[in-house]
Computed example of a mutant assay.
Amino acid sequence: MISVVVPTYNEEQNIERCLASLADQTVPRDTYEIIVVDGDSKDRTRELAEPLADQVFIQTSKRVGGARNDGAMAAKGDIVATTDADCILPRDWVERIGRNFAERDIVQLYGTVYPIEDSFRNRLSLLGANTFSRLGYHTRTIYFTLGCNTAFDREVFVRAGMYRCIDAGDDLEIAQRMRKLGKVYLDPRLKVGFSMRRYQQFGTLKSLWEWFYIVLRGGEAGGATYSQREYK
């Protein structure tokens, strides 16, 4: 079984669309589970998620990484996949994850992204991110994994210590530990629709600059306002 973990916080505008795409997969619904881990939302996120998910509960750990960890600990599957509440998953996403782990000796899998809000600027921004991801993978220097489109061998993920509960860069950092325990594999055909809403709201350059700033600080935001939102 594959367990899909979706962290949420005040996502009533997006969660149904995300979970509907997860419910409409090319593999039977009983071969995977959907776990929504909520940061104590003040809106209807949990109410809307309940009919579409197998588990919905409030996280006990901190930050988005902590929500993913809580989901992994509640998971029944040998493979734990993670995505975001404002993403759209292609119909073959779960199937492709399962096939990669069945056919390859890997401990972590990740893919690429495309913008849900289609525009030249957004396509260019994510082209840069996907190019950086491919270069890092093929040069074996840095694995630019994204929490919205990655999957783990659950046993190895737990043994590695899971995500760090930091402000940003947790999805980048975990791959550096996973690669010490096995192969981390990039499947460029494993694609996810990625929302550019925060980049549009706060500016792409500012968002990227602050993300890099936080990562260089070891994941602590300091005075940066990268996410521009509360999260438990």
Rank of each mutant, 00 (worst) to 15 (best):
I106P: 05
E12G: 02
M196R: 14
E11Q: 10
Q13F: 02
G39S: 15
R159E: 13
K183A: 14
R140C: 04
I88T: 13
C148D: 05
L19E: 05
Y213W: 10
I214N: 10
D92I: 02
R154S: 09
V80G: 11
D30S: 11
F132W: 14
A75H: 09
A151T: 01
I106A: 05
G182R: 07
A72Q: 07
A224M: 02
T145Q: 14
R91P: 04
M73L: 14
L216Q: 13
P90T: 04
F101T: 03
G128Y: 11
L22K: 03
V27I: 14
V184W: 02
I116E: 03
E11A: 09
N69Y: 09
R134P: 00
F194Y: 15
R159F: 02
G111C: 02
A151M: 01
V215K: 15
T150L: 06
E220H: 12
A72Y: 07
W93K: 07
E155S: 15
N10D: 13
R104Q: 14
Q228E: 13
L135R: 11
W93C: 05
M162E: 12
K76N: 12
Y199G: 11
Y199S: 14
T8M: 05
I174M: 04
A151P: 00
M1H: 12
L19S: 05
D78I: 00
Q108V: 00
A53Y: 03
Q59S: 13
T31M: 14
R179W: 05
H138G: 00
G98M: 06
G77V: 01
K232S: 11
R123E: 12
S41P: 01
N69D: 13
D92Q: 11
E50F: 05
R91K: 15
K42N: 05
V37I: 12
E220R: 15
L19F: 07
S61C: 12
T60Y: 11
T82R: 11
Q200F: 01
Q108W: 04
G222M: 04
V107W: 10
R44D: 06
G128T: 06
S125E: 11
C87H: 10
Q108F: 01
V158P: 03
S119T: 12
G219Y: 04
R197S: 09
Y114R: 14
G182S: 08
D38K: 05
H138V: 08
R229Y: 07
R159C: 00
T131D: 04
L52D: 05
G161T: 06
I34L: 08
S125R: 15
R164Q: 13
V215P: 06
L181G: 10
I116D: 02
N149I: 07
R63E: 11
F194E: 08
G147N: 02
G66I: 02
E50T: 09
A75F: 09
R44T: 01
M73A: 11
R198P: 00
E16D: 04
Q13Y: 04
N149G: 08
D24Q: 08
D167P: 01
L52F: 10
D167C: 01
D24C: 01
